[in-house]
């Protein structure tokens, strides 16, 4: 594998997303939504405004868990199928570059665009939190931002896999939306449904581990456990096995969600 062609492709992807204002637009969306949620997150409990870093993060988790997978899937679904449809894929493949370099270059370029947009947007919120609460809780906030970014990279990896498999852009966009529905909306409900319908007989002790099968749940568990107040608030410590409260285990699971779909995409993309 050579880096030069890989980096050339990554730079082109990033430049493309900067040029069409994608990065700016997504950064603004993150900043605006996050600020609104941070201020209004406690409205159900009868208060508005920033209460504590931990509760602000808890509010942001429920925003980010919808927003980031959607944005990452929309960013990546046409990475390969789009080039295929406009005829430029043959041209790219005819260059002195391997298919693996091309795909990794695309992934890294899109990942850089996603990271730049998310970090810019969430940094603005970070500044607000810092002015309000000082530096003490920023450590938690940084952990939240990092985990959100990793979740974004996992869904981007899924999107790139879709873009390799799909026959055309329309199908790819359909598959991307379907993945979002499945992981963000359906998965938890289905788990809960099975649990309730069988009176807890099916799954049993293994049940919490099923959460590892969804990168959005991995993200949720990571954040809920890093926040002592919140986890005791929800009584989660009694519910979830200790292995899942280890950030390294959950971080490893998220890394798996980044590497495996991308690996499958590379495998599927070979000639």
């Amino acid at each position: 594998m050579e880096w030069r062609p890989l980096v050339a492709v990554a730079r082109k992807e990033l430049r493309d997303r900067l040029r069409n204002r994608w990065v700016v637009a997504v950064a603004v969306v993150f900043a605006v939504f996050s600020l609104v949620i941070a201020y209004a997150g406690g409205a159900q409990q009868g208060t508005v405004g920033l209460r504590s870093i931990e509760f602000t993060i808890a509010s942001l988790v429920s925003l980010v868990i919808y927003l980031v997978p959607l944005i990452a899937l929309l960013l990546g679904f046409d990475a390969v199928v789009g080039e295929r449809e406009r005829g430029s894929l043959d041209l790219l493949l005819a260059l002195p570059i391997t298919r693996t370099e091309l795909l990794l270059g695309k992934y890294l370029g899109l990942a850089a665009a996603l990271a730049l947009a998310m970090l810019t947007g969430l940094a603005i919120v970070g500044v607000v939190l810092w002015r309000q609460f000082g530096t003490s809780g920023l450590y938690h906030y940084a952990g939240f931002v990092l985990s959100a970014l990793l979740m974004g990279l996992a869904f981007l990896s899924l999107a790139v896999a879709v873009s390799v498999v799909a026959r055309d852009r329309t199908r790819a966009s359909g598959a991307a939306i379907a993945l979002w529905f499945f992981f963000v909306l359906v998965f938890d409900l289905a788990l809960l449904g099975v649990l309730v319908a069988t009176g807890g007989q099916v799954g049993g002790a293994a049940f919490p581990y099923l959460l590892l099968l969804n990168p959005a749940d991995v993200f949720r568990v990571l954040n809920v456990f890093s926040l002592d107040d919140v986890s005791s608030f929800y009584g989660l410590t009694s519910l979830v096995p200790p292995a899942l409260s280890d950030p390294w285990v959950m971080g490893g699971a998220m890394a798996g969600w980044i590497v495996v779909p991308l690996g499958l995409a590379i495998w599927r993309f070979r000639p």
Binding site: V7, A8, R11
Partner: peptide, 27 residues
Amino acid sequence: GYLPENVVLWDNLSGLETLRFFARIKD
């Protein structure tokens, strides 16, 4: 040097940026 039929290059890049991209890959 290869030119495929009906190729559509990238709208957001300039002609020069497009060529530089290819130049980098071709070393």
